[in-house]
């Protein structure tokens, strides 16, 4: 006959946040110091080159007739190579937006930032990219807001997503 499962068996020794810095338990710190150079690759490499030239590029799939951004070398629907490059508008519609008060390490920000998914004009419906909204307030951001990219001056562009400073209301 199996043993009855009882609550007394749950084990674990919770620590307080201060137990480690105050030395009540032993610990060791390790810094991986892991630095990377992430290759842009074929499709995104070309996309970044476009940004440097002030253009946002998508790719068109002749099979499912979608125009998608970010560009990719294969259509995940049809599994066919994508070779038709299409310039998109630098305007679009906010699909969703957040008003964010925390940083990546969970520390607080004094001023919020506004990450958003922006569906770009010229791409298939709902095909967006992640970027930041600017010149907005928590009161003025909303789903459906029409926005346009604010570009860095050409000489300051490096071929990076940050060549677009942010998107701002039209």
């Amino acid at each position: 006959m199996p043993l009855r499962w009882t609550v007394n068996e749950f084990r674990g020794t919770p620590l307080r946040e201060s137990d480690i810095p105050e030395g009540r338990v032993l610990s060791v710190r390790w810094d991986p110091n892991a630095r990377y150079a992430w290759d842009a690759g074929i499709a995104i490499g070309r996309f970044l080159q476009g940004l440097k030239e002030g253009r946002i590029l998508g790719v068109h799939c002749p099979s499912c007739r979608r125009t998608v951004v970010p560009p990719r070398i294969v259509c995940e629907n049809c599994f066919r190579p994508l070779t038709q490059w299409v310039p998109l508008q630098d305007t679009g519609t906010v699909q969703t937006v957040s008003v964010c008060y925390v940083n990546w390490d969970a520390s607080r920000r004094r001023e919020p930032e506004f990450p958003a998914v922006i569906a770009l004009d010229g791409a298939s419906p709902g095909c967006g990219i992640l970027h930041i909204l600017g010149e907005v307030t928590p009161q003025t951001v909303r789903v459906g807001l029409r926005v346009r990219a604010l570009w860095k001056p050409p000489q300051e562009r490096t071929g990076a997503i940050t060549d677009i400073c942010y998107f701002r209301p039209l």
Binding site: V25, S27, V28, W30, P32, Y36, A37, D39, A40, G159
Partner: peptide
């Protein structure tokens, strides 16, 4: 190479 350089800036503290 056209690459974005960065790091994963976390570290670990292990209890024993």
């Amino acid at each position: 190479a056209l690459a974005w350089q960065g790091e994963i800036p976390t570290y670990n503290i292990y209890t024993f």
